[in-house]
Each structure stands twice: as structure tokens, then as C-alpha cells.
């Protein structure tokens, strides 16, 4: 009889591209949540058997062409797309969200902030759904504070995509208060149809303890993924 799986058995990959900035904080968040972070490199052809993947923020490939456009075509992203199709939880944060949209894992796109300014602030958000692999620990409707730091953060999508996201409960996060970037319907994060892939502009990995962040509100993204992984192992 094998022992019940524990969170320490959960391996979460964190991808580094040239220009990625937040991979160290993402790995730290994974560790604080109780899982084992695994470094993944942009040139990797496979994901080293990780149970979940974080695509962290930064400026991969210098935002050349469009934010996320070059990273979306790198070998490791092809592996991420394949894994996501099999249900592996994937979280794209900021530039990672842009990459997942460019790679076609999430609908819509992120474009220049309406005010043209780089926005860097502690952002109030509402968690609209806990029916995803990355938000299961939040009460639906929970209000959280997490840093936001981006200039290409304005989410856009066509009307039919927006209707599908709303109708299927796939809007994961909305900005509260004055819109930081003009995102349509104040959307800060969305999920794939199966709820396993989530992209968001704010940075939960920067809010995992009150010593280094404005709150610890972001930690439950990573704990939720561990729950999702262990849940799917035990099934």
C-alpha cells in the first residue's frame, strides 16, 4: 500500500526565458505553498515530469514584436501546450499571461494600457470563481490585494469571446476601484474552458507573506494548484 501523496511530492515547474524577471519569486511562492519548484528552461523540449507549470512575469525576449510573441514559439511552450491539453495546471502571470494568449491556450490578447503609463501598485481584486485549478482555496467573491506592474496589461477580446468567458464562468479575477489599464469589463484574469489554465496580469507570487508583499493573499493560488494536483493523483 502506497502512502497518501503529500504536498512535498508535488513538483511545480517554473519557466525561465531570456528576459524573465519573476521566476525566483515564483519558485519561492511554490516553496512557501509546500511544493517543490522545478526550474524549466526556454530551450527544454519536455517538462521533466512536473505536475503543474508557472509561466512567470518579466520581459521575455525584450517584448520584441509583441509581449509574449517570441516566447510562445519556443520549445518549452510547445511542451506546455501539450501538457495543458492533457489537463496539467498552468498559471501565466503578467508576461506569462501574454505568452499563454499568444500561444493560443487562452483567448484574447493584452495590449498597451489605455493611459500609456506603466502601472505599478498594490491592486485590489475580486476572485470571481474558485472553479479553477489555481483558485480553489478562495471563497468565490473574495477580495484580495496583489501587486500589479505592467504596461501591456489591457485585456481585450471580441464580443463572442467575452460572452463565452462570462457565460462559462471563466472570468477569474476583476480589478476593483479605478481601472488600472482600461481592460474590457475590468478583467484581470481568465481561465481555459476546463479551468486548468489560468492567466492573470497581477502578481500573486509577490504577495505570499506580509514581510515582502502587501499581503499574503497570493499564496492560495499556489496552494490551490497543489490541491488540484493531489486531487487528480488520488482520483
Amino acid at each position: 500500500m502506497s502512502p497518501a501523496p503529500t504536498s512535498a511530492a508535488c513538483r511545480i515547474g517554473v519557466i525561465t526565458f531570456p528576459g524573465t524577471l519573476d521566476d525566483v519569486d515564483a519558485a519561492r511562492a511554490v516553496r512557501h505553498a509546500g511544493a517543490q519548484p522545478v526550474s524549466l528552461w526556454h530551450a527544454d523540449d519536455d517538462l521533466h515530469d512536473v505536475d503543474a507549470v508557472v509561466v512567470p512575469g518579466g520581459f521575455s525576449y525584450g517584448d520584441y514584436l509583441r509581449a509574449g510573441a517570441i516566447a510562445a514559439h519556443q520549445p518549452v511552450l510547445r511542451a506546455v501546450v501539450d501538457a495543458a491539453r492533457r489537463g496539467t495546471p498552468v498559471l501565466g502571470i503578467c508576461n506569462g499571461f501574454q505568452i499563454l494568449c499568444e500561444a493560443g491556450l487562452l483567448p484574447g490578447a493584452l495590449v498597451r494600457n489605455a493611459g500609456l503609463h506603466f502601472v505599478c501598485r498594490d491592486q485590489r481584486l475580486r476572485v470571481e470563481t474558485n472553479a479553477t485549478a489555481w483558485t480553489g482555496r478562495y471563497p468565490a467573491g473574495a477580495e484580495i490585494v496583489v501587486p500589479l506592474k505592467s504596461i501591456e496589461g489591457r485585456y481585450v477580446a471580441d464580443a463572442s469571446t467575452l460572452a463565452a468567458l462570462a457565460g462559462e464562468g471563466r472570468v477569474v479575477l476583476r480589478y476593483l476601484g479605478t481601472s488600472p489599464n482600461g481592460a474590457v469589463q475590468d478583467i484581470a484574469g481568465i481561465a481555459s474552458a476546463d479551468g486548468r489554465v489560468v492567466g492573470l496580469m497581477p502578481h500573486p507570487e509577490h504577495a505570499i507573506d506580509s514581510l515582502t508583499g502587501p499581503s499574503a493573499d497570493g499564496l492560495d493560488f499556489f496552494r490551490s494548484a497543489i490541491d488540484a494536483v493531489l486531487g487528480s493523483i488520488s482520483v
Partner: peptide, 8 residues
């Protein structure tokens, strides 16, 4: 597929 993003 690369130079333009047909979404936007």
C-alpha cells in the same frame, strides 16, 4: 501566425 496577432 507571427508578425501579426489576428486577435487585435
Amino acid at each position: 501566425e507571427l508578425l501579426a496577432n489576428p486577435v487585435i
